[in-house]
């Protein structure tokens, strides 16, 4: 065989070629790779991929060096693509935030199923602390009436003071004139909430008045509506006590912080009526 390989290489080449051609004919149109072929290809695939990626890097480098106009055109195209994606991202984030807010409202309505709620968007705001009102996109056509309570997922927002056909104005808890009859959830001591605690120009809380002299109020106590006065149904969250007033204060007993983010209100719930 060795002599044949040395003396008749052309003959061997021809025979080998015929065998290879026969192999090629046998493998025409097959659908699956053989085990050996599969093993060989799988073993070389990572190296092939690595070499391919390296080739792409080198090609990109030379393209940038020798064809800057092509790179510039591609750059412009990519910039437009990025801008389109950024617009989508902003839209997506807005939808995500809206979804979170609406989910929170839905959770609130589920937890307070003794009330009939109407969801309404906040269409305008006036955040002057002395005339603090906001406008919502629901009015008499939607069943909204004056003095109805307005809440959101965090607690009480305010009450309706003016009703149009398709809009209503709401006086928020941050309005200096707003007063609500409340009670300490833990001790059931009743009092009155209203008036702003300011730190400079910033509203930091609401004043809690008229608690009984022996009331055992503590920082962290939850304040809820008492139901007296007929505007706000009993048991709605108003806020938490964050500071007790000095004993010789003589004006109010404690400061209550509402959980509601009045600066970023976008949707609210109007309590149309309550069962019983």
């Amino acid at each position: 065989m060795k002599n044949l390989w040395k003396n008749r290489p052309i003959l061997i080449a021809l025979v080998a070629s015929l065998l290879f051609l026969l192999l090629a004919a046998l493998t025409v149109g097959r659908r699956t790779a053989g085990r050996g072929e599969d093993l060989f290809s799988s073993a070389l695939l990572p190296i092939q991929s690595g070499v391919g990626e390296l080739t792409d890097e080198v090609t990109d480098f030379f393209t940038r060096v020798f064809f800057p106009s092509q790179v510039q055109a591609e750059n412009e195209r990519l910039k437009k693509t990025v801008a389109a994606y950024e617009r989508r991202l902003i839209l997506y984030e807005a939808m995500e935030q809206e979804n979170a807010r609406l989910t929170e409202l839905l959770d609130y309505t589920s937890a307070n199923d003794r009330f009939y709620f109407l969801a309404a968007p906040v269409t305008a705001k006036n955040l002057n602390p002395y005339v603090d009102t906001l406008t919502i996109g629901a009015g008499s056509r939607n069943g909204v009436k004056e003095q109805m309570a307005v809440v959101n997922g965090q607690g009480i927002v305010g009450r309706v003071i003016e009703v149009g056909a398709t809009y209503s104005k709401v006086r928020t808890m941050q309005n200096e004139d707003m007063r609500i009859s409340v009670m300490v959830e833990r001790t059931r001591d009743e009092g009155m909430l209203g008036g702003l605690v300011l730190s400079g120009d910033t509203v930091v809380g609401l004043k809690l008045y008229y608690l009984p002299k022996d009331a055992d109020i503590q920082v962290g106590d939850t304040i809820v509506t008492s139901g007296l006065g007929g505007i706000f149904p009993k048991g709605l969250d108003v806020g938490k006590v964050f500071e007790l007033a000095a004993e010789d204060n003589g004006v109010y007993d404690a400061c209550v912080k509402s959980e509601v983010d009045f600066a970023h209100l976008e949707e609210v719930l109007v309590i149309l009526e309550s069962e019983g």
Partner: peptide
């Protein structure tokens, strides 16, 4: 043969042609 195994669906054609050309 290796190139056919890696890239072609028909194994054997490339080595056959290489052999014929070399011969």
């Amino acid at each position: 043969l290796m190139e056919d195994l890696l890239c072609e669906s028909m194994v054997g054609l490339t080595p056959a042609l290489c052999l014929l050309a070399a011969a």
